[in-house]
Design a protein around this nucleic acid. Sequence first.
DNA 1: AAGTACCAAGCAAGCGCTTGGTTTGTCAAG
DNA 2: CTTGACAAACCAAGCGCTTGCTTGGTACTT
Lengths: 208, 208
Amino acid sequence: MTERGEEGKRMTRKRIMDAAVSLFRHKGFERTTVRDIATAVGILSGSLFHHFSSKEDILKEVISEAIEVTLAKMSASVDESDSIEGALKALIVCELETVTGESGAAVGLLISEWRSLSEQGQSAMLELRSAYEGVWLEVLRSASRLGKIRVEPILMRKLIAGALNWTHTWYKDGRSYQQADIAEQLLSMVLTEKAYADYCADTAMSAV
Amino acid sequence: MTERGEEGKRMTRKRIMDAAVSLFRHKGFERTTVRDIATAVGILSGSLFHHFSSKEDILKEVISEAIEVTLAKMSASVDESDSIEGALKALIVCELETVTGESGAAVGLLISEWRSLSEQGQSAMLELRSAYEGVWLEVLRSASRLGKIRVEPILMRKLIAGALNWTHTWYKDGRSYQQADIAEQLLSMVLTEKAYADYCADTAMSAV
DNA sequence: AAGTACCAAGCAAGCGCTTGGTTTGTCAAG
DNA sequence: CTTGACAAACCAAGCGCTTGCTTGGTACTT
């Protein structure tokens, strides 16, 4: 029935992480017990510790994987963009997808469950996070230099991060607002009116 | 030494709530134990339950007081404003002060510790919260009708709420950014460029 | 035969909260 | 002003339960 062996091990590990992400997102790290996770996977709680050394270890793995996946997606999106405005839009979309996405990556966890990590855990995540933030700041600084945004880049990044992270408290898939819509509206707030108008004209052109 | 009697009761109750706010903000509700709170106040853990029926009861009291205080402050600020732009600025400043403020009110708690409330607790808070959101939406709808903001009011409110709530994770008193500065920059993102320019001109005039 | 994946059982610690009793302030009756 | 019944505020101790995690053994794969 169950799959043993090397393949099985990785599978179970993945299933544990998936279950953990879902539970952490809905109930929070502290209110989620190792028994909850084990039940969701279909094993006993003690068996979790053959795959992870501690409950916090699960959280760390889940978060760092989420950051890595998102970072890769963001970098790729930025490289593909042929304008600052396009790069900004791509970054917003990437982060929005990650924050609201139910399965897999969940940077949103980093948001709400940050304090549940030990001090070493926090600093380890900070290192990963700084690469992530670096991508954002590079694009925002370019935009600022070209006069396409008004607000100072570092503050701007914090405001954008807040607006996007917060979506995970109210965004429901397929309801009220579409992801593309949210991204577009936020972009219109971030860019100057001129830059935004130019960007709209450009994308309209390339669509034809 | 200690003050007993009716005066003393209210004092201790207040001290418990203050200690709880501080601890909840720094460690989160789940990671804060009733023993932590009691120690901070200078009593034993069991004695807390003469003032509150449960740990969750403390959280509910703290949150609802925070909402009421902030709501009153916001309503007053809006009434005093003589323009939509001014009202918006006042709302932003109010919420910013509440979210980043260390002592007393702490709507920020509602943000991060929401899930720690029972279902009844959550719906009770929702009722209070809706009055709070009502003030925001009224102002935003007026601004939208007058063409002073571009983004649709409900979405705009969610984006603003996120940006402001998030400040409690990075804002340090007296460091990097001033509250007034953050509020001003956010306002410039919310309003259309024309509305913002008009508002700046107006405030410059009245300052002279 | 060896090693992996898991179960069965439970431990030590910590949790929110209760209980029973002691101290302290309140206030009307004497 | 004294006195004594009463309630409020708090302590001391610990109960019952849940928590993350461990241990020792078993079933399956290679």
